[in-house]
Amino acid sequence: MGKHALLIEDEPNITEAIRFILARDGWQVSIHGDGADAVDVVARIAPDIVILDVMLPGRSGYEILDELRAGAATRDLPVLMLTARGQERDRRRAEDAGASRFMTKPFSNSEVLAAMREMVGP
C-alpha cells in the first residue's frame, strides 16, 4: 500500500485527472471538494501529503494552510499548492502560508508526480 494523498480541489475534471495519475503511480488517494471543512478532513484522514487548491468554495486555500501550519499534528505536513492564478504575488502568498511546493495550473503530470515523490518519497 502506497502513501496516502489527500486532494482538496473543487473542479471535478481536474480532480479526476490528478486522482488518475496518482492512483496509477501507486498512491492511495482521498478526495474532498469543499474548503469549509477541509481542516477537519485532514485531521480525520491524516494523509501523508495534501494537494491543496487555492480557490475553493467555502474557504480559501491560504486560510486552510494557515490553520494546518498552526496545528501541532499538521505543522510539518507536506502540502503541494495548486493555483490557476499565475502571478508572482500568489506564489509569495503561498510561501508565506507555509506551502511545501507551489505549482501553477496547467501543470505537467510528470512534474506533479516528481514533486510528490520528492516531498514524501523514500
Binding site: 473542479e11 475534471n13 481536474i14 485527472a17 490528478i18 488518475f20 495519475i21 480557490m55 490557476a84 492564478r85 499565475g86 502571478q87 501553477t104 495550473k105 496547467p106 501543470f107 505537467s108 503530470n109 510528470s110
Partner: peptide
C-alpha cells in the same frame, strides 16, 4: 480571466498527457 482560462486548460493538458 487568468483563472477562468487556466482551469479548463489544466483539465485539457492533464488528460491529453494521460
Amino acid at each position: 480571466i487568468s483563472h477562468e482560462l487556466r482551469t479548463p486548460m489544466t483539465s485539457i493538458r492533464a488528460f491529453s498527457e494521460i
